[in-house]
Write a protein that binds this DNA or RNA. Structure first.
Lengths: 235, 235
DNA sequence: CGGCATCCGGGAAGATACTG
DNA sequence: CAGTATCTTCCCGGATGCCG
């Protein structure tokens, strides 16, 4: 039928918040399901379609396509073709897209206090690095220098501490003082959960090489906020 | 049929991100449509069902019911019955719920740079106060004291500047140095858009009483971030 | 195989009407 | 005023298939 024309020409897209508030507009841009997690996965640099998908367990290909199209149309993501040798396509955040990191950090910081948070689920290498950036306590890192390396799935990542600051992102683990190889949740259990390395090596498939003393001091730089106390739900 | 049992007992709720990342868990909590805007409307204090609904243009009653139920189950919102005289029911954020304000602020700060942002749409009084909190520039307020009052719809709000700090929330406009009466977007056009008061009084239904010099200095305390420069979408 | 387009089933959101 | 009931519409998720 030609009824579709009617909805087209009517006041506006019905699935949008017609609200001048910046928060509402942000939700117009990144409020759809998966959108912010796609941005999260691009936060450390460009990625291919399949790599994004591999790190977002549960997203289907068509939804990822739709999200990337939408984010590109909004000016948050650009699609680039790599130079001839590796002629594949990658997606990358625009400068403005990278500026969304504080949103991701505040969401994570707040949700870490949720009584329902389960830290044992799947975790991507990117998420781990971003959690380090979020939970880093600069005051504890004053007199500390060194680099931790991570081999998680196919990617290699580094977190470098120097001058009381932290740089966490992709990088070569060759120069690292300590290198963790294994699943990201195991690393998180060590850093945030205080689980001993020995236990994780025995049961969680984690391998650690290098300076284990530095590993312990590195873990001491981060801590999760306390759980929120919440009134009992009396249904 | 009894097929529903199968989906019930399967791995988990299908509509959730099974991801240990705090950001993903936050989206499990407040990622559904309207959820964050409901929280925003409660950010200045308890509200009744109908008042929330009135300030969220477009939300339907059943969706608001579902969101409030979900937020209550998550420990973000509590339902309270007011003391006998006014025996109505209100919804209020828990302490942890109030801690979500930085999320709302970062979303707003980021989206204000969006090329597609349209500040002429509907705006609630609550949104206006929260935008003041977000965009306040403490450095410019050093030697300034005073209170601006706002009468927007049914509610009265105040923004008080003192000691280089801003307090914006509900309050009595009786002591204010200047009082704005009219639609919130008109106030926003004055504060953020630099539109002259005379024009807004003539055309936007705004009424201003009191110290107009203070009004001008008050407006100077806030400014929107510059628009992001974004690559042209070459479809 | 990577990057989509297409079709389908289930479920969430939107609009309206109705009830205590 | 504070929701509930119902119906429609649209989005999400999964499977399949095309195309370079």
């Amino acid at each position: 039928m030609e009824l579709d024309k009617i909805t087209d020409s009517s006041t506006a897209s019905r699935r949008r918040y017609d609200d001048a508030c910046g928060t509402a507009h942000a939700l117009d841009l990144v409020g759809e399901r998966w959108a912010l997690l796609v941005i999260r996965e691009l936060m450390l640099g460009p990625k291919r379609f399949s790599d994004i998908r591999a790190d977002l367990p549960g997203i289907s290909a068509n939804v990822l396509t739709q999200r990337l199209e939408g984010l590109e149309a909004s000016g948050i993501v650009v699609r680039r073709r790599l130079p001839p040798p590796a002629s594949t396509q990658v997606y990358e955040l625009t400068d403005w897209g990278y500026e969304a990191e504080p949103i991701i950090q505040e969401l994570g910081r707040w949700a870490a206090r949720s009584p329902a948070h389960d830290p044992s689920l799947q975790l991507s290498g990117t998420s781990l690095m971003l959690s380090f950036r979020t939970m880093f306590d600069a005051a504890r890192a004053q007199a500390m220098n060194g680099t931790a390396g991570f081999r998680i799935g196919n990617e290699t990542l580094v977190a470098r501490v120097a001058d009381g600051r932290l740089e966490a992102g992709r990088g070569d683990t060759a120069q690292a003082d300590v290198v963790f190889t294994g699943p990201a949740p195991a690393v998180a259990a060590f850093v945030y959960g205080g689980v001993p390395l020995a236990a994780l090596e025995a049961e969680a498939g984690l391998a650690v090489t290098g300076d284990r003393g530095f590993a312990a001091r590195f873990a001491g730089l981060f801590n999760l906020p306390a759980k929120a106390v919440v009134p009992a739900a009396d249904a």
